[in-house]
Design a protein around this nucleic acid. Structure first.
Lengths: 157, 157
DNA sequence: GAGGATTGTCAGTGCAACATACAATAACAT
DNA sequence: ATGTTATTGTATGTTGCACTGACAATCCTC
């Protein structure tokens, strides 16, 4: 069967640089998802050597800021449920970045604390975060950054 | 890698209702992730009956806007890779919401089009999206919404 | 002490992002 | 035309993470 070079109806008139997404463009949630995706991608690129995810860094960071924190408290601050939190804590514990301890005040609770390795990893991660943030903030003035954070906070708080 | 010991807030005592997240608060990426999480959670709540994810709705929507679109083109517009796109298209196809067809112009390509069921699901989804968007936009003035979208676009475009 | 709530754990499910490999096809250089 | 390279879709496997529902231990209230 010969293949005539049929120049039929071009599927979508696909002009170079045509990335129009139509009416969906006006949907805020859509842009949040795309922005999150772009941010996440750049994050993982920046963190290839360190091999930590956004979530994991955030958890390390919060534990460092709040020693002896309980998993439920951590979950609450991160807006995660208990099961998800446990999965992340498990991963971090397996890698020797944190230790679980017994709470003195409530025997149901576990205290979470970083190990030296965890603190070390967090320090490296914070450097990488600064790099990542520079990439992110390069699009905005200081005032815009402030406004963006404020608006995003209105969504998640 | 001698790094000046960061002078951090002393261990924040844990008062009732203390949800402070410390210095991490100034990290834009952190807020994007939290806002995305909050948005995603509300989305899934709004969509329990319809049983579609953000991603799936976006794909249906884009296919509806661009009939005969190829998977690669779709992937590009959604900022996904081919494998991820295929997984989503497969799921949607299994549920009878779209069909793959042969492209007339390039036999490597598949054309994607919605079925009637797909169009129906999309119509319902759009209603739910409006509801979801109302929830999202209730925090902002029209002008702020516009600014937020513009800023988020700067990140993902 | 009994009943209810909280905390951590565990098992299972689903989505989605990634990498890798492969076959078919198209595009291109010579 | 021929061989090389690029593109497109597919298949497979891994990882992360969010959710559900169940469970035991513990705490709190009455």
């Amino acid at each position: 069967m010969a293949r005539p070079k049929e120049t039929l109806v071009p599927t979508t008139p696909h002009v170079e640089g045509d990335e129009d997404i139509g009416e969906i463009r006006s949907i805020v949630g859509f842009h949040i998802r795309l922005a999150h995706g772009a941010t996440y991608r750049h994050f993982t690129e920046t963190f290839t050597d360190i091999d930590l995810t956004q979530k994991q860094v955030s958890v390390l960071w919060l534990i460092d800021d709040h020693p002896d924190i309980a998993q439920t408290d951590l979950a609450h601050r991160m807006r995660m449920d208990r099961a998800t939190t446990m999965a992340i804590v498990n991963r971090l514990q397996d890698r020797g970045y944190l230790v679980r301890g017994a709470s003195l005040t409530d025997r149901r609770k576990q205290t979470l604390n970083l190990t030296d390795a965890g603190r070390d990893a967090l320090a490296k991660a914070k450097d990488a975060i600064l790099e990542h943030e520079r990439w992110l903030k390069s699009r905005f003035t200081d005032q815009e950054v402030e406004m963006l954070i404020e608006m995003l906070t209105r969504i998640h708080e």
